[in-house]
Simulated scan of single mutants.
Amino acid sequence: MRSGKLGFSLIELLVALSIMGLLVSIAAPRYFGNLDKAKEDVLKEDLYILRDAIGKFYADRNRYPDTLQELVAEHYLRKLPADPFTQSPNSWVVVPSEDPSMGVVQDVRSGAPNKGRDGTWLKDW
């Protein structure tokens, strides 16, 4: 027969929790930093794809699209991507053409109010 009680003492539990807390405090900043980097990379890729579709539309039709949805309707895009920071496909900011007779959407930018990791505004990318 065992004479001691089964289980852990309070000190053993506190030591284990403090070790776990230390490990989480080391890993958490890296995790959230990687999330921000991933969102920025997705934003850059989405902007490239949107601008490429606008360029192809212009090359084919000799005018810019009137809306971003026209790129989807004319099969230049399967669907309008969501901005990774705003989580919405409706937050893209359209840069209009200087000549309205050439269409409306000459360029597109992010509608996110954040700054990137390099300190530049995402809306200026």
Rank of each mutant, 00 (worst) to 15 (best):
F32Y: 15
D99K: 11
L35W: 12
K5M: 13
L22D: 00
G33K: 04
T120V: 12
P113H: 03
L71I: 13
Q87W: 05
Q69W: 07
S110K: 11
P113K: 12
V15I: 14
T86C: 08
T67K: 11
Y76C: 04
P96Y: 09
F57G: 01
T120Y: 13
L68A: 04
E12L: 02
R2P: 04
K79F: 14
Y76H: 02
A16G: 12
K44C: 01
R30S: 08
G33S: 06
N90V: 08
E70V: 05
L122Y: 05
L14I: 09
D99E: 05
V93W: 09
K39R: 15
F57K: 00
Y31K: 01
S9Q: 04
Y31C: 00
S3M: 09
S18Y: 09
F8R: 11
V72T: 08
R2D: 10
P81S: 08
P100F: 03
A53L: 03
E70G: 08
A59Y: 11
K56M: 14
Y76A: 01
I11K: 12
D83F: 11
L50P: 08
K56N: 07
F57S: 06
R2A: 05
V93R: 15
S25F: 13
A16F: 06
T120Q: 15
W92N: 06
M102I: 03
A53H: 05
K5D: 12
R51N: 09
K5T: 03
A28I: 04
D118G: 13
M20L: 14
